[in-house]
Write a protein that binds this DNA or RNA. Structure first.
Lengths: 199, 199, 199, 199
DNA sequence: GATGAATGAGCCTTCATTCAT
DNA sequence: TATGAATGAAGGCTCATTCAT
């Protein structure tokens, strides 16, 4: 039970850290902000994470594993692969508080990782998973004749790249790239993979 | 002459600032780093840019206008629009010191802009230009029958999104997204716009 | 039995404290270092010594009484007083792990005592004992004609002063004051007390 | 002129640091105590000495060179060597605010040096000087027949050791070792070096 | 125009101490 | 008797900013 409570505390801190990153950004996150958000002392945060750096790295991993968990159920659903592919892409659109928050944390990680090899490892791991999931679904679709032939990896890379790039603009509140327009772009691309199947 | 030298000093500071942002990141940029890089005192930097914020915003605009200048000559070249479209995309691949540096500054701006509306305005302006250039070229191609019909804006958005998303991975040194693979993805997409033209 | 074990725990803590003082110094001693050394929690240390100050003062007294115990057997030996005098001085040379450790603790106490009257009392008590032992032996020697006449207290003070001052240099690892040279200085002085006896 | 004022600031900080060390001890010295003593901000102290450690080491060297300067004039006086020898020893008795303060700083250095090799180097240098001065004078005395023959280095070591050891007790306010008693001990020893000259 | 000494608010981190178990 | 999670005061250090020169 004490282990549960400890683990609870740790998770609580990590969740709060992700919230602060999403709200204020990595740059202006103070350890005391995290503490304040869960109504504790900074000492408590340091009790679990010796340094701010440790805290932030752990928060990124936490954000990552929660993201993956949420997608796992989409991948493992009973639907046909094309439906699941569309659902997977849809689940990445930065809509809704939770997803947008995850994207913001994610974007902050990229920039931090530019100067922290340790975070690049996390980034690589995440992309590995994300790419494998999507390429797997595309291949399943191809096997079932739902998607036209062609290099699944190239389709995947284009799609993931576009999702990343467009999501940034959406969370930046860009006037010309709204969530609806992003959805339209992604859907159109997916449609284009399907439309020529019978040709 | 004194105005020239003043302007020289200002530019020198902005160039140095971009270099520091690219090298160490926004988060760990100190005014004294910029000063050191051009062999002057922090007081001098503050003489031109009262606050750090002023300095950084000016640096982003500087990075932006230099980027645009470099593309202008591609757009205005004598070649046919498809050649220019391919050249434009190619020019955005993060290869070479200058382009990679520009991308790094750019990525740092995104993250900073998440919490600074004033920077979002810059982002919007840049994307407006970038989108207009590309959509214009695609439309020219379509008019000349070099590219298949379809919503040019959607093609543009997908392509710009992909370039952004992939470029991030490339500058992050991702194992699975190298500059060559990025080029392949972009080229394949451009080819796909072309290939069905005569169908 | 519980009292024995309690007393055992207390002693164990005090011994560990002396070791930490000797190893890292008073200044950088943390309660957690002491706890770690005996494989317990800081709470346990505080159970026996409410404050760090209590712990340190007790440790000094512990160091002191162990020191005295070790000399008692020299003083109470069966040998003639001159032999015992030489043995006593010899026993104070900072040679061997235990003696050197005691000296380090001792030196740390001096400095701490500069700002803690309570520790000055301990210092005075220790010096009282040390001076009484030595002066007593010198007087015994004089009575037996083994040492020339003269103020025994002055001889004692000079000798004790020299032992203290030289020991510091030895434990500091001074190049010009090694344990051998210290021994030579002390022996020479003792010899000088003896040599003119028959004159 | 600006260099003079800078050097003035540095010296002012070092002097204040020595005062704080003497008053409160090394252990409880806070950078803000030093700043407060000269009516400046902590930032100013750090402007001259990046870390607390730098400050303290510089303060020790400062204490050391001031000590040496003061003795230099004794050594270089016109008097006969015996007079100068007596004056040198007298000058080391911890009497008077300045000398006592120097001794306190000195004692704090010893303890700190136990765990800082860099300070041991300073200690060695100081002892080298101190020993050379004294041994030189003793030899001069011997050459002029003012002091009896014998190993000057051993006399020196005994005397320096005694001065150190006794000074500690004096500054500790020991009941049994007052400044007068210390003077008596030292004088008696010096007398003993002289008394047998004509034998 | 340019400098750099000086400032001081702010933040991370440490660690003795407490207390519920 | 013993634990260790939690606390929070304290202090070293950073760095943007100011200002006299």
């Amino acid at each position: 039970m004490s282990r549960v409570s400890e683990s609870g505390r740790r998770d609580q801190i990590l969740r709060a850290t992700c919230e602060v990153i999403a709200d204020q950004g990595f740059r202006s996150l103070r350890v005391s902000d995290v503490a304040k958000r869960i109504g504790t002392a900074t000492g408590t945060v340091h009790y679990y994470f010796p340094t701010k750096r440790d805290l932030l790295h752990a928060a990124f991993e936490h954000n990552f594993s929660r993201s993956l968990e949420r997608r796992r159920q989409i991948i493992d659903a009973e639907d046909d692969p094309l439906t699941r592919l569309r659902a997977l892409v849809e689940s990445y659109l930065p809509e809704g508080e939770e997803t947008e928050r995850a994207w913001r944390v994610w974007a902050e990680l990229w920039i931090e990782a530019l100067h922290e090899p340790e975070l690049q490892v996390i980034n690589d791991a995440v992309y590995g998973e994300w790419r494998a999931m999507m390429a797997g679904l595309i291949r399943e679709c191809q096997e079932q004749g739902l998607v036209r032939q062609g290099d699944a990896v190239i389709h995947t890379n284009l799609l993931i790249g576009a999702v990343d790039g467009l999501a940034i603009q959406v969370i930046l509140g860009s006037r010309s790239m709204t969530i609806d327009r992003m959805r339209q772009v992604c859907t159109t691309y997916l449609d284009s993979l399907v439309e020529d199947v019978h040709v």
